[in-house]
């Protein structure tokens, strides 16, 4: 270093908040993707698990009579929507893990001494990252389901599927990031993820319609966020893109496609509002 190096640049008084926010968010997101590429096992596991569900469960009920399910569709077709949603859900549930590790290893401190234009960039990066990989995983599952003969929703249907998944992923990501700051360590976070994951799948309409369930489970399934994502997707796979139609017969009444999506939107917004005081405190 020569002495001239030290007068060369002065960054202190540039007014470029938007560009700064973009630069830091991009850099943080890039870091998460580099980690993913060098350690792809979580990505692969996130696809493998639902894939096994799809193949095994599809096979288990493959000889069930066609009249078994409402609308006379095969079980594989019925199951597809559930497994797609489950894929996105469990992917998003992991959103908090990288943040938790950064807290534990002190990397977060490195970010916090930097003059970030907004500390929301740390959250934005996680949301961008987890949204892209869970959508990617879901699309991989959709492709596999197609090859197994469980159908394909068409282009407009695909857009509806992705929109629905996006809303669910936002909500679950908010929840997971909130947990990542509220819980003391990664062991606790993993425990919560582990405990929440399967019960939410079973207590939804992923594996069976509400009409098959005992009343108490039907109620659970009818308030389970996964159900509000599964039904529009199932409808799209059945060729129904009209969101005005009733797609869920819940114990408390009928819910339309619009109803399902509105509930998901409200849930995402509600959860982000709920966790923001926590994030503000931890990232202050």
């Amino acid at each position: 270093m020569t002495s001239s190096d030290y007068v060369a640049f002065d960054y202190s008084d540039k007014k470029k908040g938007g560009a700064d926010l973009r630069q830091e968010t991009f850099a943080l997101t890039r870091r998460l993707f580099i980690q993913l590429v060098r350690r792809p096992s979580t990505l692969v596991a996130g696809v493998l698990q639902p894939l096994i569900w799809l193949v095994l469960f599809g096979a288990l009920f493959s000889k069930a009579p066609d009249s078994l399910l409402p609308g006379g569709i095969s079980y594989g077709r019925f199951l597809g929507a559930g497994v797609i949603v489950f894929t996105a859900f469990s992917g998003a549930l992991n959103a908090g893990l990288p943040v938790m590790f950064d807290r534990e290893f002190g990397f977060l401190n490195r970010l916090l001494v930097a003059p970030l234009s907004s500390r929301s960039s740390i959250i934005f990066a996680s949301v961008i990252y987890i949204t892209s990989i869970s959508l990617l995983q879901s699309i991989a599952i959709m492709g596999t389901a197609f090859f197994l003969g469980y159908g394909w929703p068409g282009f407009a249907g695909l857009l509806l599927v992705l929109l629905t998944l996006l809303l669910l992923v936002f909500a679950v990501t908010a929840l997971s990031l909130g947990l990542a700051f509220a819980l003391p360590g990664h062991i606790e976070l993993i425990a919560v993820i582990f405990v929440v994951n399967l019960p939410l799948l079973f207590a939804s309409t992923a594996l069976a319609p509400i009409s098959y369930m005992p009343a108490w489970l039907g109620w659970l399934a009818a308030v389970n966020p996964l159900t509000f994502a599964i039904e529009p997707i199932r409808a799209a796979y059945g060729g129904t893109l009209d969101l005005g139609l009733v797609i869920l017969h819940a114990p408390y009444g009928d819910v339309t496609g619009y109803g399902c999506l509105s509930i998901l939107i409200a849930l995402s917004l509600g959860l982000f509002l709920l966790i923001s005081p926590l994030l503000n405190r931890k990232l202050a």
Binding site: Y11, S12, K14, K16, A19, D20, Q23, E24, F26, A27, L28, R30, R31, I34, Q35, R38, R39, F105, G106, F107, N109, R110, L111, V113, A114, P115, L116, S117
Partner: peptide
Amino acid sequence: RQLGYVAQEVAIDKILTGLELLQLQGDLYH
């Protein structure tokens, strides 16, 4: 903005290369 901090406990990201870490750092300081 005015301050560089070298902590006692070095927190690095083991998966990144040193170069990538420096690039990240540069972007965090805009």
